[in-house]
Amino acid sequence: MSFDSDDFLAMARRNPVNVALLARLRALALPQCHLTAGCLFQAVWNLRTGRAADAGVKDYDVFYFDDSDLSWEAEDAAIRRVQAATADLGVTVEVRNQARVHRWYAARFGAAYPALRSARDGIDRYLVACTCVGIDVADGALYVPDSLQDLADGILRINPRHALPDLFRAKAASYQARWPWLQVIAPDAAPA
Rank of each mutant, 00 (worst) to 15 (best):
N159Y: 10
A78W: 01
V128Q: 03
Q98W: 05
E73V: 09
D61I: 04
A55I: 00
L167F: 08
C130E: 00
G140W: 12
F109L: 06
H102G: 11
T131G: 13
D76Y: 08
A138N: 07
A99K: 07
R103I: 06
V101C: 01
I123M: 14
V144R: 12
D54M: 04
D88P: 07
V91W: 01
D166H: 09
L142N: 00
G122A: 07
L148T: 09
V137D: 05
V57I: 15
D88A: 07
Q83E: 13
V144G: 11
R161E: 09
Q149N: 10
R48Q: 15
A77I: 02
D124W: 08
G56K: 03
R96F: 07
R80E: 13
Y105V: 06
G90E: 05
F65V: 00
H162L: 12
L148R: 04
P160I: 14
V133T: 13
A115M: 15
L47N: 07
I155Y: 02
R100M: 01
L148K: 08
D139Q: 12
R100G: 00
D124Y: 10
L89G: 02
C130R: 00
L47M: 08
T131A: 15
R96D: 03
A85V: 14
T49H: 04
L116R: 09
H102D: 10
C130H: 01
R161W: 11
F65C: 00
C132W: 03
V101S: 10
G122M: 04
D76S: 11
D67R: 04
V101W: 08
E94I: 14
G134F: 08
G122H: 03
N159W: 06
I79Q: 05
N46S: 01
Q149H: 08
R48T: 13
A74F: 05
R48C: 03
V93W: 08
R51D: 02
R108V: 14
P165I: 02
L164K: 00
V93T: 12
R100P: 00
A99T: 03
V93Y: 09
R103W: 08
A152Y: 08
R161S: 13
V62W: 05
A112H: 12
G50D: 07
D67Q: 10
A55M: 05
A141W: 04
A78R: 06
D67W: 01
L142C: 05
G134H: 15
R117C: 15
V133H: 10
A119M: 08
K58V: 07
L47A: 04
V62H: 00
G50K: 12
L151T: 01
Y143W: 09
R125C: 13
L116D: 09
P145V: 07
G134M: 12
G56W: 02
H162M: 10
Q98M: 15
A55V: 06
D146I: 13
A138H: 06
W45F: 11
P160S: 11
V82E: 04
L164P: 01
L47P: 02
Y64L: 00
A138F: 06
D66W: 06
L164Y: 05
H162G: 01
V62A: 00
V144Y: 04
A77R: 11
A119R: 06
A129Y: 02
A129E: 12
I79R: 07
A115N: 11
A163D: 13
